[in-house]
Every structure is written in C-alpha cells, then in structure tokens.
Design a protein around this nucleic acid. Structure first.
Lengths: 240, 240
DNA sequence: CCTTTGAGGTGTACGACGTACACCTATCTG
DNA sequence: CAGATAGGTGTACGTCGTACACCTCAAAGG
C-alpha cells in the first residue's frame, strides 16, 4: 500500500518540467504561469519544482532554450541572403507559436548557451557570405531586432535591467569566459571583440548603441525613400 | 492640534501620482515599482492611490502618456525624411531616459489617447510628404518597430496578451469609436480602414502581419546587400 | 455660523505569488 | 541488507494588488 493510487507520474526531471512549462505558457499565457500552477499541472507540490530548477528565472531561461531549439538550422548551400531570410522567417514562426517567448526573451539578462550557439551560427552565415566582421556586427543589430521582435541588449552584461550596479568581473573569471567563448562561439567572440576595441571588457557590449540605431534607421529610411520614388504599391507585391 | 506635524503634502491628485511614479521608475526600475512603494514615496497609505488611479494597469497607462508627451513635436517645414528621422531620434532619446518605458509600452493592450495622437501626427508627416495611404501603412509598421523598440500590436485590439478570448464589440460601440476616431485621429483612421478592408472591424488590425514582417525584413536585407556590394565600412561613417 | 456632503485618506484583510527550511521517502550503491 | 542521496512534501514568511468599511476635513448651502 505504499504505492500510491497512481503509479504513473514517472518521476520528474528538468526536461519534463521545461516541456510542461512551455506547454502551459502556450495554453494560458505567461502571466498565469506560476510555479504553483505549473506544479499543479505536473501533479506535484510547488516546492518539488525547485529540485529541478533553481528558481523561476532559471525556469524561464530553460523555456527560452526550448524555444530557441525549435528554430530551423541554416539551409545548406544557398546564398547568404536566402539563408538569412529563411532563418529569420523560421524564427518568426517559432516566436509566433509561442507568443510569450518574445516577452520572456527580452527579460533575460544574460544569454544561455543555446542563445549564444544560435547567434554564433547566425553570424556564421554572414561570414560565409563574405561579410566583414565590421559589417556583420552592425547587420546583426539591425536584423536582430527584426528577428527577435525587440531591440536587444542580449549581450549587454552591464544592463541588469533592475537598475542595480553592474557587478564587477574578476580578471580570472573574464579569462575563463574568453576560453569558453573561443572554444564554443568563435564567431560571436570575433564580432564582440572587434566591436569593443575601445572598451576593456570581453563580454560587455562596448558598441555605440546610438550608431547601431541610426544605422538601422537609415537603412530603413533609404529603402522607404526608394519605394516612395518608385510609387510602389503593395497590392502588386513586386520584389522590393 | 488637529493639524498634523507636516502641513505640507498639498493633497494628492492624479498628476502628482503619475509624475511620482515616473520618477520612481526612473530611479529604481519598473520591477520594484509597486503601489505600496509608490505610496510610501508620496507619504501616503497604499490604498490612497486608488482614489486617483483605478488600478495598477491604469497607473502604467498614465505613465506611458507622460512619456509620450515628452517626445518632440514634428519640426516644421522640412522634408518628410528629416522630419521622420528627427522625430524617431527624439522618441529614442525619451525611451532611453525612461528605460522601463519600452517594456511597459509593450504590455499596453489598447492605446491611450496620447498614443493615438502621437501616431496620428506621425502618419501626418508621411501624408504631407506625398505618401500613399497604402505605403504609409506598411512604413508605419516598419518604422514603428524601430521607433518603439519592439514589433507592435498596439492596434491589435484582438490581442489581450493573456490569451483570453477577445471581447466582442457591440455595433453601437464600434460606431462611437468611429466617430471619436474621425474627429480626433483622422490619419490613423484612414490608414486603419484602408488596411482592414477585408476585415469587418474598424479597430482590429486586420492587416497581414506576415506581409508587414517580410516587407520590413526585405527592406533591411536589400539595404544590407547594397552595403555589402559597396564594401561599406563603418569607420568612415559615410552616408548610407 | 453651523451643518451637511462627498472627495480624499486610512486600516484591516484576503488570496495570490516566489521560495527558505526542515522533513520524509523512494531508489540506487556498496 | 545498510546507508546514502536524489526527489517529493508541508509549513511558513514576506511580498504583491486591491476589496471593503471606515474616518476626516474642506467647501458649500441654509
């Protein structure tokens, strides 16, 4: 009789927790997704979740990773433009499927390995297309905000988003980060270091946000001007 | 002795509440901004706030209005491109000053009059520049997501953002909305109705999100392609 | 001048929330 | 079979938004 009525519930694990969280958020939205509600869904007491995720923030990190994992890998053997285009559209489809994801992604304060990996592979598409590190950097900002649906500070480790002072990073920690980056995310590292030559930090954004903003803005305005001059109308859906 | 020690605190009103809320959010961030904390700042008991704001959502609406009000009006007598450019940059400066504003703006489910007024005047700049209603519509989407820092659903009344079913709108209410719109926001109305010809609703977005997305994406990709072909480098900061 | 009234401010209370901490109990290892 | 340890439980605390009943005080009417 030690066996409970339901001999099901095959023991929780981190993955089942994340999957359930994603499913629940898809169903009811991110607002009503509470630890208690999620626990209930898994037929478990709230505190049980904390054996698999450190806290709610880490749960959200994990959910983001699940979502990122759903974005298609780059299609092989195409020109950079169609590769990038398809991948951005794939990302859009995923974020559309999980409406809450954009909002959550936006609140992540530092990128998970899955996000870094995605960025790295994305940057790789530009490199393969013969882009300079410099242009790739600016372009990632411009495309990134379209792809994610918000202007990102994903790399800006200095933004704690709650106004606390940025924790100073010890040199040896920074060195370790560098090792990690160069082993796993060489493209990200290349872009990041090139962008922060005037800044001491390896991980800080170190780039000129104002410039990035105007870069993308002018890209848009120039494109718009061209369409205006051409008397472009959408009903014909011509190539831009 | 009925007079309290401090004869100051010149009686609360909605405006003082909003100003204090904005100042507090600027200082400590949006996370720690609670009704209780705000009340404390105003030297008042939490429930006192509810005499001036219906609830926290309405407080946030009011805060957004304060922020929107800080964006510069269009400069007179310039071409559309510089007018738009300056105004977007002004909006950016404001959102930069109030870091929390972007996140809050994003969670607003329907636009306040201040936001509608701003949109209306923004659309007006394109109309004055000779843009068609059609092109203006697409361009507002593309520029909008750059200006606000996120891809907007500001007009999408069907998105309750917590997954609830969209409340059906009675015909007479819809008629009243129409009156209101045509009186105060004629430009918005024009763009909205043109965009939703296939949709019955006046206020629903009714436009093809996928198309808007690809429109802006291709605008970017084409611009990027041009830069790539020109071997553009940022260090020289040439005009794009 | 006194009374009435209603807007503005108070106090208490409730049901959410995230999660610390001490505890129990399966399951696996030696 | 014994002991360890990963997984699950129960209770409790401090936070949040806000409903509801109450008080108070400035202005207005007799």
């Amino acid at each position: 009789m030690t066996q409970q009525i339901a001999e099901r519930r095959p023991r929780l694990n981190r993955d089942r927790v994340l999957q359930a969280a994603v499913a629940l958020a898809d169903e009811v939205g991110i607002g009503p997704l509470s630890m208690r509600r999620l626990a209930q869904e898994l037929d478990v007491v709230p505190m049980a979740l904390y054996k698999h995720v450190a806290n709610k923030e880490e749960l959200l990190d994990g959910m983001v990773d699940v979502v990122i994992g759903e974005i298609d890998p780059p299609v092989a053997g195409a020109d950079w433009k169609s590769m990038v285009r398809l991948r951005v559209l794939s990302a859009r489809r995923v974020l559309q499927r999980h409406q809450w994801a954009r909002r959550v992604l936006e609140t992540r304060t530092n990128p998970t390995p899955a996000v870094l990996g995605y960025m790295d592979s994305f940057i790789g598409m530009f490199f393969a297309g013969g882009f300079s590190v410099d242009l790739t950097h600016h372009v990632m900002h411009a495309i990134g905000s379209r792809m994610w649906g918000f202007t990102q500070e994903l790399f800006d480790a200095t933004a704690t988003s709650d106004g606390d002072a940025p924790a100073p990073v010890a040199p040896e920690v920074q060195a370790a980060m560098y090792q990690e980056m160069s082993a796993n995310y060489p493209n990200v590292l290349q872009v990041a270091t090139a962008a922060s030559h005037d800044d001491g930090s390896v991980v800080g954004s170190g780039c000129d946000d104002q410039f990035e903003f105007e870069f993308a803005l002018d890209l848009l305005l120039d494109g718009i001007e061209r369409l205006h001059q051409l008397q472009w109308v959408s009903s014909e859906h011509p190539s831009l």
